[in-house]
Amino acid sequence: MKPLLRNLTPKIIFITAALLSLLPFISPAIALSMGLILAQLIQHPYAAASQKATHLLLKISVIGLGFGMNIFSTIEAGKEGIVFTVISIFGVLTLGYLIGKSLKIDFKTSSLISAGTAICGGSAIAALSPVMKANEKQISVALGTVFILNSIALLVFPAIGHLLQLSQSQFGLWCAISIHDTSSVVGAASKYGEQALQIATTVKLARALWIIPVSLAASYFFKTDKTKIQAPYFILLFILAILANTYIPFAAKAAPYLVEFAKAGLSLTLFLIGSGLSFKTLKSVGITPLIQGTTLWILISIASLCAILALTST
């Protein structure tokens, strides 16, 4: 009986905490913190299933957030972020290559960290790893690096934004450029305000489309089959959700409920991400990849913030 209880207890704790993260008063930051704490206290009872669920939940949540947006304001937000997007992506990829080389990090690991920082975190790493023929160790190190920095960003970015008195549009743009994963971008922006959330989500998903050209370049460089390239098709559904909210009255009426459902899904997504970041995972990353990822992240955060403050109005 006792061994059975020992096996059941982590599962009960995990499921209870996951259900708590769905409650409306649990913010994305709190959900992530709950996951991080739990990861240090118990062994993850659903590690493999959690990883798969995270990717699916994130896509569903992002599509749901589309029902809270208007196509005209979305286009305006996308136009504002396009220059920052292009410059930052090429800048981060170049700097990442130079930093990785100077630290003597394995080229594929370094490239995955750079792409994850430049484009959209774990999604970019997952899409590029088969194209680059990366092994499990290289993928896990890159993902670990990105998820650690994502967790920090989600917790500190809103505080910095308020300290610097950034406007909603400035903060949304800064999040989209400087935070790796879409989940953490949306989590940080939703804490700051609705306008910040709309701008951050739109610009971040526009960045995610760069997975396709970067994957094509990687397939040429690593001589792999182009059919391995994974296009982010869920972005099309996100756009369709925005169009439905703008032009279909029935969808517009249901939109508030769909958006709340999406936000709850996002909190659960971040809880699952946090629950996978145990001390063992952090230790397996190693110091040099973490130095590369942290240096890139700090540089892009400071450079983009300075550019946004200089070029945009409040």
Rank of each mutant, 00 (worst) to 15 (best):
V86M: 04
T109E: 03
I105W: 00
I82K: 07
L95C: 08
I82N: 00
E80W: 05
Y97S: 13
G78Q: 01
G91I: 13
I89G: 04
L103A: 03
I105H: 03
V92H: 02
F90H: 03
I87S: 13
G100C: 11
Y97R: 14
G100W: 14
V83I: 09
V83C: 08
S88Q: 12
G91H: 05
K101H: 11
V86A: 13
V83H: 10
G96S: 09
F107Q: 15
L95D: 06
F107G: 04
V83M: 09
S102F: 04
T109L: 12
L93V: 14
D106M: 12
Y97P: 12
G81K: 08
K79R: 06
G81H: 04
F90K: 01
I89F: 11
L93N: 03
I82C: 10
G96V: 08
F107Y: 14
K79Q: 06
I105S: 04
K104F: 00
S88D: 09
E80M: 13
S102A: 12
T109M: 11
Y97V: 04
K108G: 09
I89C: 15
G81E: 07
V86E: 01
V83K: 07
K79W: 02
G81L: 02
I87T: 09
F90P: 02
K108C: 09
T85E: 13
E80V: 07
I89P: 08
V86F: 12
T109Y: 11
S88H: 06
L103E: 00
K108L: 14
I105Q: 02
L93M: 13
T109A: 01
